[in-house]
Amino acid sequence: MTVTIGFHAAADTRVDLFTYGTEGTPILDLSGSEHSLTISAFSRVSNADHLAFAKALATAAAEYVTALETYAAAHPDGS
Rank of each mutant, 00 (worst) to 15 (best):
S40L: 05
L37N: 08
A41Y: 06
T4Q: 05
S46M: 05
P26W: 00
I27K: 14
G6C: 03
L57T: 00
M1P: 05
P76E: 05
T19C: 02
S33C: 07
A61G: 09
A10K: 15
F42S: 13
H50P: 00
A48K: 11
I39Q: 02
F7M: 06
T66F: 00
L17F: 12
A52P: 06
R14I: 07
A11H: 11
G78H: 11
D49G: 03
S46R: 10
L28K: 07
G32H: 08
S36R: 13
A60Y: 04
T22I: 03
K55E: 15
G24A: 15
G6S: 14
E23G: 00
E23Y: 03
D49H: 10
R14E: 14
D49I: 11
S43H: 08
Y71C: 07
S79Q: 14
A10D: 08
A11W: 11
A74G: 08
V45C: 05
S33Q: 13
G32S: 03
D29Q: 15
D29E: 14
D77C: 13
A60T: 09
H50C: 07
A11P: 04
L57H: 09
F42Q: 10
A58I: 01
D16Q: 14
A11K: 15
T22L: 07
T66D: 01
P26A: 01
L30Q: 02
S79Y: 14
A54H: 02
L30T: 13
D49C: 12
D29M: 12
A62C: 01
I27G: 04
H35W: 09
S33E: 11
L17G: 05
H8G: 06
A72H: 12
E63M: 01
E34F: 14
S79L: 15
A72L: 09
T19Q: 09
Y20L: 06
I39R: 12
K55C: 13
A74W: 04
A11E: 15
H8F: 12
E69N: 07
Y20P: 01
Y20G: 03
Y71I: 12
D49Q: 14
D29T: 13
S46F: 10
G6K: 14
G24V: 03
A56I: 08
T25H: 10
D16Y: 03
L37A: 09
F53C: 07
D77F: 12
A9L: 04
T38G: 06
A72P: 01
G6N: 15
P26F: 00
S36P: 00
M1T: 01
D12Q: 06
D12I: 10
I5W: 01
H35N: 14
